[in-house]
Design a protein around this nucleic acid. Structure first.
Lengths: 245, 245
DNA sequence: ATGACAAAAAATGAATGCAAAATAAGCACT
DNA sequence: AGTGCTTATTTTGCATTCATTTTTTGTCAT
């Protein structure tokens, strides 16, 4: 019986650029970074089988370091390792996505709370800057610009929490849902978009007042609403966002 | 130059009991489970070097599956892999601990919020049961019993959140601080102990009312206070808890 | 004795080899 | 032609081997 799950094409990884060589002293370390990026960026279709042999040829290495990297990616939840049957890109069920969104919401909520304890006026000013930039994109119905500014605001809050452990976890979970995250934002209906802007006003306000507990609540609810939009988007066909106001 | 960091003794892992054989189809999988447990349980001193050769002999396997397990444990933050210099039990700085406690606080805070959405009356009743049990241990100054009941209450809340992703993350982070967690509880001064009991009253109350946002706040603050106690314990010598009332 | 240097021993990182399992191919049969 | 079985090929899991790097040990000089 032929599996309906597609296999990947031939060259999956960029040659050997090693973009900004981050922390790759060892071979398995570099492979880990490259393979993780490639998977997170969604270059391999969901559920696709990723045979060791093929990957080895792609990266030009032997199976040992590759297998080590695969084990780590599996532990991170990006791929699945079926006994004696190789690696597959992990396919997230709707429930998985709901859970991931909620955990992300919890982490950002925590980040907001912690940020209020440590954030500087300068950092708040920078976030205000991003906020108004984002508002501009909103007015111009520039989804891409809006999305990027939005992303940077949330990252700034996480950074202001001054907690590397939190940041690492946040990044890891974000990687898992990265594919849908983008489309989730695009899926926003105008109504929801306006709502999101209002929520961001409240976020900024609470942050200015360093109201940790309040900000925590607002952020959770904000992410919760995002989750709802994303799930709806994946379930039913969504209304297209207009290209211009 | 001889390192001051101690090496581990000889036999580190239980023969091959495979307690309740959880998910070990493959050899590296079983090694991963056994080694993780052993490390989490604190059987190897902090910062101790864990040479591959020795571990291989202990488990009676070759280096390949062991190295795969080590990579995963390193990704989980339990050990460190120094390039060309082997594996060590990761030594947590005070800052690391603070960060970990805060992340745990965030996760439990999230768990409380989610639990309020889904928890059944029966589950609440079970937690009440544990609560009174814990109160009994408190009255009898039974630290060990108190600690266990306390642990189970927090686990019950996480379970009631109905989020496997959250639960997995929670368990993983809990593993990292497990050594200190125990002594942190023992380190409680009587004043703090009474305070913790009052906080637990509030937790139960909010849970009964399904007041998610409120419970989220209380849980965060509760864990924050725990963190303070734990850090103090590690910094300065602590007052001993009396053995009997 | 103490310190520096050099050689030996051991440990790590990665590649290769081999047995078992899974997948695919071939073939008879209805 | 389609289905069920047998055989061949591929793939995976683990052990073993090889090349470097690190660590230890031993020797000599100060």
């Amino acid at each position: 019986m032929k599996s309906t799950i597609p296999d990947i094409g031939v060259p999956i990884a960029p040659p050997a650029t090693n973009g900004g060589d981050r922390e790759a002293a060892s071979l398995h370390g570099e492979i880990l970074l490259r393979l993780r990026d490639y998977v997170v960026e969604g270059n391999i279709p969901d559920g696709a089988r990723v045979p060791e042999r093929q990957l080895c040829e792609m990266f030009g290495i032997s199976r040992t370091p590759l297998r080590e990297a695969l084990k780590v990616l599996a532990a991170e939840g990006l791929i699945e390792l079926l006994p004696n049957r190789g690696a597959r890109i992990r396919q997230l069920s709707q429930r998985d996505l709901e859970e991931l969104f909620d955990v992300m919401a919890g982490l950002e909520s925590l980040a907001g709370r912690l940020a209020c304890e440590a954030i500087t006026d300068e950092e708040i000013a920078a976030i205000e800057q991003l906020h108004y930039e984002m508002y501009g994109h909103y007015l111009h119905r520039d989804m891409h610009g809006y999305f990027q500014a939005n992303q940077r605001i949330h990252e700034s809050i996480v950074a202001a929490a001054r907690n590397e452990t939190l940041k690492t976890a946040y990044t890891s979970f974000a990687g898992r849902i990265r594919r849908v995250r983008y489309s989730a934002n695009f899926a926003r209906k105008r109504q929801r978009w306006a709502e999101a802007m209002r929520e961001h006003e409240a976020i900024l306000d609470a942050l200015r007042r360093r109201a940790g507990s309040e900000l925590s609540d607002i952020l959770f609810q904000h992410l919760r609403n995002k989750r709802t939009a994303a799930i709806e988007h994946l379930t039913e066909p969504q209304e297209d966002a207009p290209a211009s106001p």
